[in-house]
Design a protein around this nucleic acid. Structure first.
Lengths: 104, 104
DNA sequence: CACTAACGAAAGCGTATACTAACTTAACGC
DNA sequence: GCGTTAAGTTAGTATACGCTTTCGTTAGTG
């Protein structure tokens, strides 16, 4: 979960996701939308893929990128516990990251 | 928007939000749930407030913290454009952060 | 008015991370 | 096979960010 949130913390990565939101795009097309260098975008693409928000598909020498709905589904269900407090109380009784709490 | 996403990138800040999700808590109570020092948590609280995910209320020498639904509402509508692509195409025709695109 | 409790603010420090520059790899056309 | 196009990988570097320590502030309590 944290990987997803960390990935979205970078404005450029969000912008990339917006680009590929509606249609599949090639790496070159994506990087051409930004003023940074191509390797910089390439690194952002790795982060997004690792987070599960993006998928890569190879076509010859080209690489095509597309939104990965699974990652967003995960994010969605995670965030739903915040705008629905009743749900939250049910879902997180033992609470994942609470290993730190009450504890050591 | 980026402030919200940046705020959520830190695991401890997410944990804090989980704590105050159901009930209002004092600063001391919150920091007692973690092994870090109190100022560290205080800084996280500032970030969350600035992002609009948390609200502060003073009661004498105490400070009480509570989830701020407005911030989550903002986040929600932002993310909805990702799991509903039809919506995305309508909403972001000129596209906010696209100042960088096509452009220089 | 001291004294303590409950905090936040400021400064300093170490690490994580996003960038650039150079290099490498893989597929295609001739 | 050789060059070109399309892309990722690998250092290296500069800045951002989170943590700790110390100090400051405000409100209760005798």
């Amino acid at each position: 979960m944290q990987a997803i949130l960390r990935a979205l913390a970078e404005p450029r990565r969000v912008a990339i996701l917006k680009l590929v939101r509606s249609r599949e795009l090639r790496a070159g097309e994506i990087s051409r939308h930004f003023r940074t260098t191509r390797p910089a975008i390439s690194q952002h693409l790795r982060v997004l893929i690792k987070a599960g928000l993006l998928t890569e598909r190879r076509d010859g020498t080209r690489r095509l990128y597309r939104i990965c709905p699974e990652g967003f589904a995960q994010l969605r269900s995670f965030l739903e516990t915040f705008w629905d407090e009743k749900l939250a109380k049910l879902k997180s009784a033992p609470e994942g990251e609470m290993t730190e709490t009450l504890g050591l």
